[in-house]
Amino acid sequence: MATYDGLIGALGLEEWCGGGKTDGPMTMAELLARANGTSAPAGSPDPATPLMQTPFPSLDALNKSCSAIPRSRDMTEAVEQGFLAIKDPLKVVLDPVTQPLSYMLDWALAGFEAVPWFIMIPLLVAITWFATKKIGVTLFVLASFCFMAFINYYDEAIQTLSIIFVCTIIAVLLGVPIGIAMSRSNILQRAVIPILDMLQTLPTFVYLVPLIFLFSVTESKLYGIAIILYAIVPVIRLTDLGIRLVDKDVIEAADAFGMSSRQKLWGVQVPLALPNIMAGINQTIMMSLAMVVIASLVSAPGLGVKVLAGIRNLELGVGLVAGFCIVLLAVLLDRSTKAALGRIDTSAR
């Protein structure tokens, strides 16, 4: 009847397969075939499949010959059921652990919004000045925020900034120690690098799928976790790399003078790796900005919401202007962190 009948017969599996009767729900293809009246009446011999159209022995193809083999749909159904089954125990653990993230995001959001613009903008400009000591960057920050406030996108920009602020701090607090641990253990490095590769290559939307199941969409930690997972990768990688790249001769000198491994780490390795670590933090900020836009799909406030509105309601102008504001934010964050990084670099020489 189907292509792989012969194979099932040759393996002597007819008994286990149960006679080839399908009692599961029909697939769409089957339904279409029936509606078109093309399916052969049961029992009549199938016309032989042409060689060129031999299907891959996939779940669906094998199911035609042997109903005991699940169809692809049954398989995804099983994955879903499995996920739902572990969801509740997982929630019991993850919910309390991640709850502080929700609080932090909400507090930061409330805090950033509560500060009036005439305090916030001078504050941001002052921070930029003290971090970079560069007039150009400082003026750029001032002009950007004034522009966004002038076109009434200030609130969204500040919301986006507050999310990035919280997520970057957490990513650095987690990422730097992980990077340090990786640099000290080859085994750990070999174990963590595939995870980092996965986090980095996973399309951003895919992060959201399991998170939506785990947490309620109204909770801010949902997007917080997505942003942190996505943005933590560069700071881990560059911390690990930076420490491993520290001149072997200098490490040998530290050893020769009897430094303990703690003295070596904080007195030599971390200070010398600082330029690399700072480059990692810069990348982390950039990536959390990229993710915060996508995270507006799951209720993250900020400029992403405007972009989303532009797409949903075909408001081309809103989408474009919000997009431009995001670019502005990205450029000013990048420039000011790079200028701050440059200052660290020169003081090290």
Binding site: D247, D249, V250, A253, D255, F257, G258, L272, A348
Partner: peptide
């Protein structure tokens, strides 16, 4: 004990200086 030896009894000078640049 080895750390003590390196701290108190033996010091070392290197070909490539190996000073702490920071």
């Amino acid at each position: 004990r080895l750390a003590e030896l390196r701290q108190n009894t033996m010091s070392m000078v290197f070909q490539k200086f190996a000073l702490f640049p920071h």
